[in-house]
Design a protein around this nucleic acid. Structure first.
Lengths: 307, 307
DNA sequence: TCTAGCCATATCATAACGGCATGTCAGCAA
DNA sequence: TTGCTGACATGCCGTTATGATATGGCTAGA
């Protein structure tokens, strides 16, 4: 009992004639005669009553006909489903994104476009800092992540550069820093800084600290905050000024002014997309493809950029 | 997507190794490698993740695995069902039997044995006279019949002789015919006969009348009855005597005595089983086989016996 | 009676499939 | 590091399965 035999048999059953069926399935009549015969021998029961003019179904033939239709339908359903899976039209993708970058227009556009183009994919976005994203990527509980990395060369992971962030200064709108913006870091020696915990986002923290070490500048920290949102809220409340990734300025926040400083702009903060090398899920592949489409080809992994 | 590929794939999925699966399905490893690969190409999606030590399923592979198991199960179910149909172990057989012969031990044994041997066949027995049986056999609404025929040569039907009935005299136990049984028909010239309608069973009626015409005997009919049971009831009630098929005497009836007369015994009433020639349903075939087993091979269709 | 249509059979070419030998790679032990 | 082992991949060849063509037999309808 093979799929081919069943589909031939269905054609014969529906046309009531082997010859007519042979024209329908584009196979010569003797081939159908033989395949039906083989099917009968295989099942050990006569399926057709042969007449001078066409054939008719025996009771067994009728029984098989109904079953065969269902079986073939099921096969095409499975094929359709798996083909869709293969094209990434259905399935599931989980993506980690730092909260900060959810506000960045390019990233938001990526999420929106992916949802529009692949509406049947279960697309789950998790707001996660870079560290947890890395962990969950390696675990396999996350398909892809948009995050900071200390190096583009991550064992077991593929990476692609999205864009270059840098650092900015966030100051309270009602502060003197806002009315007379500093032009150099050295002017901020006496300033009160709101700072983050290293443990919360070591990748980001280490990168910033390395940059400041090169500049030989040490901020006077008066307050720590758990995450970027908290830190910015504190700045808005006038508790101090903060060094934040440029992505934070994507959407204006009331009470905060973002300032450029050459020394901060010089701090390259490459933003990456990363995913497991062994993960060849088509839905993920499509997400990567969309990234290339929206962010251009600049993102080819290049260790030089990540230093 | 072929059944073979699916079963290979299932073996691979369950063993987590192509090599192990190849031992399980008794096929060389390269064959499995290729068939899985063909399956992947056919569906357009990777099903396995190949590792140094065995393989594991991708998401698509897991999806296909569940579907494939169901699909193959369904196939074996269908095969089992149709094979059983082919062996006549399941299905449906309808058999017509004259009411009179339901009482005959040999016929009752046939029904009982068939039910015992093929308990899963829907075996329907219809009490029908010979004429209606013939009609319904030709219509196709009856698979087989146990009946009287005017000839063994029935176009479109197969026939097999079951046994030779003859005629007997049924008399009320309380009548003078019972106390002093006649030895010749001529003694019954003055007797009151209960008789049947020709229209109810022409085959039987014509046969009896032809015999009586040869004997040059014409019964004095005082009462007509619709069927054999009615006629015998009337005899039991003392309304008259009747000519009945010998089968009627199979089980004694209160108030009736069955008498042999040489002239009646000489009337050969062959009892046949008949079925449509084109009907090759295995369940019917088994019924015929059981008939041959229980009634012997004497029943080979022989026109000479039916004259 | 003859013809057209349909199913069955025989024969041959081709494609599918499996087996064997071999290649490649990763993990493990000395 | 080196060699070994186990597992998947690839190339080649013989066997089997499948389809096409030609042909025969049978039946219904003209």
């Amino acid at each position: 009992m093979e799929f081919r035999q069943l589909s031939y048999f269905i054609a014969v059953a529906e046309t009531g004639s082997i010859s007519a069926a042979s024209r329908r399935v584009h196979v010569a009549q003797p081939a159908l005669t033989r395949q039906v015969r083989l099917l009968e021998e295989d099942l050990g029961i006569r399926l057709l009553e042969r007449h001078a003019r066409g054939v008719s179904l025996t009771v067994a033939g009728q029984a098989l006909f109904e079953e065969a239709v269902q079986l073939l339908d099921r096969r095409t359903q499975i094929r359709t489903r798996l083909t869709s899976l293969g094209q990434g039209l259905i399935g599931k993708v989980s993506l980690g994104v730092t909260v900060t970058h959810l506000w960045v227009p390019e990233v938001a556009a990526l999420l929106r476009h992916y949802r529009d183009r692949y509406p049947r994919v279960a697309f789950e976005v998790f707001p996660l800092l870079s560290g947890p994203q890395l962990e969950r990527l390696r675990e396999g509980s996350l398909d892809a992540g948009i995050l900071y990395l200390d190096s583009a060369d991550q064992p077991g992971l593929e990476t692609r550069l999205l864009q270059h962030d840098h650092l900015m200064l966030a100051v309270p709108e009602a502060s003197r820093w806002s009315s007379s913006p500093p032009s150099r870091l050295s002017e901020l020696k006496e300033a009160d800084f709101v700072w983050g915990f290293r443990s919360v986002s070591p990748v980001y923290y280490d990168r910033v600290m390395a940059h400041f070490a090169r500049l030989d500048f040490e901020p006077r920290v008066v307050q720590y905050g758990a995450d970027n949102i908290t830190i910015l809220s504190m700045v808005a409340a006038g508790l101090g000024i903060a060094i934040v990734p440029s992505a934070s300025s994507a959407h204006p926040m009331p009470g905060i002014r973002f300032l450029h400083l050459a020394e901060l702009t010089a701090c390259d903060m490459p933003l990456w997309m990363a995913w497991r090398s062994s993960n060849d899920a088509p839905a993920l592949h499509n997400l990567v493809g969309l990234v290339e489409e929206l962010f251009g080809e600049e993102g080819v992994s290049s260790p030089g950029l990540a230093g």
